[in-house]
Simulated assay, not measured.
Amino acid sequence: MRVQQGFGNGSPAAGAPEVYLHGAAGSWTTFRPLLSEASPRERVLIDLPGWGESTRDARLEHLNIETMARAVTDVLNSLNYRRWNLVGHSMGGFLALHIAAAWPEQAASVAAISPTTFGVSEAAREPLRSLPRFPAFVGMMLIMRSLAAVGPAGPALVRVLGATPLMGLLMAPFFADPRAISAGVIRMLGRDVRPGCFSAAAKAVAHYDFDQWRAIRCAVLATRGESDVFTPPFDLDRLAATVLRLHTVTISRCGHFANLEQPEKVLRLLEDLWSQ
C-alpha cells in the first residue's frame, strides 16, 4: 500500500496525525488542495488497496471495509501513531467512520467529507428501486460494472476518455460549477478510476451494519455539498441519529468534491474540529 508521510513539528509518537483516506474514484492526490499550507500536525496520505499506486497484488475479493480498515490501521501502528485524526472523502469518509467505531480509543476525530453512507448502501443493494433517488450513483455503478467485465481494457478506456472533453461532461454532475474545474483535475480523476475496485467497494457497503457506528466516541464532522449527488441531506440526518458527537455542515456552491471545489472552507472546518 502506497503511503506518503509528511512531518510536522514533532516526532511520530508526539501527537495525532492527519490521516487522509480518498474516495472510490481517486487517490491521495485528490487531497492536494488541502495540503497547500503547512500544518503543526504530521500528515499521512494513503493510496488504499486497489487504487492509485497501491494496485500491485490487490485482490478484488479483499476490497471490503474490514480489510481496508485493517490495512490502514496496520500502517498507522507501524509508524508508531497511537491516535489518529481521520479525514475521509466519499468512500474514505465511510471508511473513516468504520475505523473510528472499530478502534474508538485511537480515533481522535473524524472528518467525513461527503461520506457515501445510507443512501449509497441502499442503492448498491437495490439499484433499480433506488434509481429515481440516486441516478448518478446507480448509473456510475452500472458503468463501472460493465467496464470491469471487460478486464484491463476497462481502465484503459477510462484513461483515454479522461483526455477528451467527454470526461468533463461525465464528471459534471459531481460539481456545482463544472466550468471551474480544470482539465488537469478531470484527467487526474479519470486516471484514478478503477472499475473493478469501484464495483467491489459498492458491493462491500451494500449490506453494511451501520449500528456499528454507535460505538464512535470522538468528535465527528460530516459535510455535504449543497448540490451533492452522492450524499443527500437525509444521510446526514440518519448519521446524526447514530453518531453521538456529530456536527454536520452543508457547503454552499459545492458538489460531491468539496476538497477540490471549496478547499478553503474545508480547511476552516477541519481546523475548527481539531481545535476542540
Score class of each variant (00 low, 15 high):
70 R>F: 01
50 G>R: 06
110 V>F: 01
170 L>D: 03
249 V>P: 05
193 V>C: 03
118 F>K: 09
1 M>G: 02
156 A>H: 09
135 P>Q: 14
194 R>T: 06
151 G>Q: 09
131 L>M: 15
191 R>D: 15
109 S>W: 03
105 E>Q: 15
24 A>D: 02
256 H>D: 03
82 R>Y: 12
156 A>I: 10
9 N>E: 07
92 G>N: 05
52 G>I: 11
252 S>C: 05
70 R>W: 00
267 L>I: 12
259 N>P: 02
80 N>H: 12
272 D>A: 13
209 D>S: 10
240 A>L: 04
239 L>F: 06
132 P>T: 04
109 S>G: 08
148 A>H: 06
145 R>E: 15
90 S>I: 02
63 L>Q: 14
205 V>G: 01
189 L>P: 00
269 L>I: 10
68 M>H: 09
201 A>Q: 07
39 S>K: 08
261 E>G: 04
90 S>K: 01
67 T>L: 06
91 M>H: 12
141 M>P: 00
165 P>R: 13
251 I>F: 02
32 R>A: 15
20 Y>K: 02
106 Q>S: 14
178 P>Q: 13
75 V>K: 07
132 P>N: 11
232 P>N: 06
223 T>S: 09
165 P>E: 12
37 E>W: 07
271 E>V: 05
60 L>T: 12
272 D>P: 01
197 C>K: 01
194 R>V: 11
22 H>S: 09
33 P>D: 11
69 A>W: 12
24 A>F: 02
50 G>K: 02
35 L>A: 11
271 E>R: 15
146 S>R: 10
220 V>F: 00
213 W>V: 01
72 V>D: 08
264 E>D: 09
262 Q>L: 07
165 P>V: 05
119 G>P: 03
196 G>H: 04
154 G>P: 08
